[in-house]
Every structure is written in C-alpha cells, then in structure tokens.
Write a protein that binds this DNA or RNA. Structure first.
Lengths: 216, 216
DNA sequence: CCGGCTGTGGTACCGCGGTACCACGGCCGG
DNA sequence: CCGGCCGTGGTACCGCGGTACCACAGCCGG
C-alpha cells in the first residue's frame, strides 16, 4: 500500500511548517502540497487528489468551509479534517455539514495529530473530545426548533401545510391533486399561496426550505 | 484531588472482571461497585454516586438505556459511558439521547478504556471513531451509510457535480450558466445527464436527493 | 490511429409550473 | 347580518425546464 498523501491548507506558514515537520517524518505519510488560502487548496486538492486534507477554517480568498464543500464535491474519496483554534467555533460545525470527516483543535499534541490523520485516512471520523461534547448536545436537542421557520409554518393554513409537505416530497401538481382529491387548479392556487408566504420564487426553493427545516 | 470512582454495570461477570482488572490497578481510579443488571446498577449509583458508570446496553431487569436515564436524573454529576458490542447498535444512540457522555466498543484496548474513563471523568465526551462516523452521518441528516449515494456521486463527472450542487442550491439553468460561464444549452445538457445518472425525473428530485445525502 | 468519453454548443418542441384574475359556498366573528 | 378568510374551482397566458437530436474539439487509452 502506498503512503497516505496529505495536503496542508492554512494561511499561517508557521502552522504549516509545524504540521509538515510532524507529519513529514512519520512513516506511511507523505505531504503532497501546501496552500495558504482556500482557493489554492481546492486547486491543489483537485490536482493531487490527496487522501487527507488538513484544512484551516479562517482563511483569505475562500474559507475552509467553502473549500471543504468544493473538495468533497470534486474529490469524493478525499477526507477533509478541519483545524480550528477555538473549540466552540461555529464554523467548525458548518464544516461538518459541508462534508468534513472530523475536526481537531490546533492545540492538539503531535501524537494526536498523527493519529487523527491516520484515522480519517482509514475512512473513519474523528472529533476532539471537547467538540464531541457539543456535538452530542446538539444531537440530543436536534429534533427541531428554528424559531423563524416555525413562525412561517404557522402562517400557513392546514391545507397549505399539506401541500407544502407534498411539494417537499417531490410530487408534481397533478400528483398532489390526485393524492388530495383536488383539481389541479386548486393545487396551483395553494402552491401559489405557499410560495408567497414562504417568499420562495418556485417550488424548488420550497423543497430546499423544507429540507433545511427538518421536513423530509 | 480524590481518585475517580467507577461503577461497573454488566451482566457478564467476565467482562466486569476484565474491566476491574484493568481499571483497578490504574492510579487515580477506584472501582466502588459492580452490578449485574440495570436496576441494581441504578441503586448502587444512587448509593455511591460514582464519577463514572460503565454501562452495558443489553441487560436483564432494566437495560442500559433505562438505567442511564435514571442515573442521570438522580445523579447529575455522574457520567455514564455506554459499552456496546456492535458499532451500529441502535440502542447506543438511544443511550446518547438518554444522557450518556459517550460510548465505547467492547473490543477497545485497555489503554483506550482507561483513556475513555479519564476523559468522561473530566466532563468531556468520548465516542469510538467508528461510531463517531455514524453519528456525524446522522448529524448531517444522512440516513446511515451512504454507500449507494457515494457510488452515484462518483459516477458523475466533475462538471456534473458542480452543476449538481448548483441545482441543489436552487439555481435556475440561466443562473448556473452565468455562474459557470456557460451557455444555457450546455447547462441543460449537463442537467440532463445528472438527471439520468441519478435517475431523477426532474431537478426537484435532485434537490431532494442532494439534501438527503448531506449536500446543502 | 481510432473509438469513447467529456465538455461545449445549437435547434426544435412540448408540457408543466407559476401568475393573474375571477367566482362561489361555507364558516366565523365583529 | 355582513365582511373576511378559507377552500374549492375555472380560464388564459407565458416562460422555464426537460427531451431529442445533432455537432465538434480535446483528451486518453486500447
């Protein structure tokens, strides 16, 4: 088996040097590139298709979240490990949603860093303990409750909510009409009102809204 | 600072003995009791108020989930660490909802066990890597394992994936064309191929697919 | 060197989605 | 009792989305 290839993306050269120092002399690991902003990171990732990308969150040009999203889009087999300075960094959670395989505090020991890289390279996930705590808290609370969206939901009539979930399921107007025993005209009327109340320009945005807020 | 007190709850005596062996000779740790079912575990926890409870999931009389729920209710400062044999154990996730501070596979090494106990005793959370992976998948609202979805994703070309995420963001063909510097015809071509490869009848189903599988 | 894939582009066509506007019965509250 | 909201329905219109088919350049692999 070849060495695990690693790409470093961080705007602070010192950090990159430190990591390169630690990882470079580790058997089975090989640094294949370094970048000092997100855009360059994405380009190098697409070029080298490394096994693991160590990605800083805050960076010029393109931040770590956007870069992560693009990398997982272009290189599905590449694992991204987010590096963050503060354990309650909101961006880090966005990073997970963007498709990162884990994240690590920058104050981690070199041994932890090496272990984390090997872990994600093996296809598993790693999260530093303090962040795991927060993650679990969110998981427990997860069910619902984005207050703004609930307010909008309550502005809808019962019938409109039925139509909304039907839209979110991907049904066409004709299918909704059949399922609810309505004419297609009526469905169109309801759909129009849902669009207006949610300020969505078309049913596609309704689908996105619904899935962002726990439906589907 | 006093030693960290630990309570063992498992219906298999061998497992308890093994853990007692490992933890008992560890400096700073002290076993304060053992129980072989959930009910007894709750009673001993209320009696000794240990820092950490190592809790099996499957047990007679009262299972580990119910026992965890009662313990965190009666002894808020006590941390419960769930032990599970299989990493995809559904009950383990229920355990997290019940208030456990983490869970651990039974095939963990003794060093991992010790480290996990110390970690939760410090008020942090610990989850074994394989389970973390699943947890993150759920956090992203992906069903469980997306092997099928990843396979589909990799069938797409890089360009098609770019178009896919644009669709998932709710962009119209014209908007995608503008963003990627393409003609609308070309966008339509790509969109058509994405639809075919994902077996989606229209872009709406693509949006749903994308949001179900972690994009957006 | 040729075939296949990818990315780019075009034309033509049709149907669904969305809008605008209107209508009417039922129900509730002022 | 009457005005307003809700749910139901209709007509007419237009544009975007999706399909079908074709074309060509570049690249890579057999």
């Amino acid at each position: 088996m070849d060495a695990t290839t690693v790409l470093l993306v961080d705007d602070q050269a010192l950090v990159r040097e430190g990591m390169a120092m630690v990882l470079g002399q580790e058997p089975g690991l090989r640094i294949v590139g370094e970048a000092d902003d997100g855009r360059a990171g994405v380009q190098l990732a697409r070029l080298h298709r490394p096994d693991v990308v160590l990605m800083d969150v805050r960076m010029p040009v393109l931040d770590g979240i956007g870069a992560t999203r693009e990398i997982v889009t272009h290189c599905p087999q590449t694992r991204v490990l987010i590096l963050t300075t503060f354990d309650l960094d909101e961006y880090a959670f966005d990073g997970l949603r963007a498709g990162a395989s884990g994240f690590l505090l920058k104050d981690a020991s070199s041994a932890e860093l090496v272990r984390a890289v090997r872990t994600v390279a093996a296809g598993e996930a790693v999260v530093s303990p303090r962040i795991t705590r927060t993650l679990l808290d969110r998981y427990r609370q997860a069910p619902v409750n984005p207050p703004e969206s609930v307010r909008l939901l309550e502005e809808l009539t019962a019938r409109e909510r039925e139509v909304l979930v039907a839209i979110a399921r991907g049904l066409s107007n004709a299918e909704i009409a059949a399922e609810l025993f309505l004419s297609e005209s009526t469905v169109k009327t309801h759909v129009g009102r849902v669009l207006a109340k949610l300020q969505a320009r078309d049913r596609i945005h309704v689908v996105i809204w619904a899935h962002r807020h726990g439906l589907g």
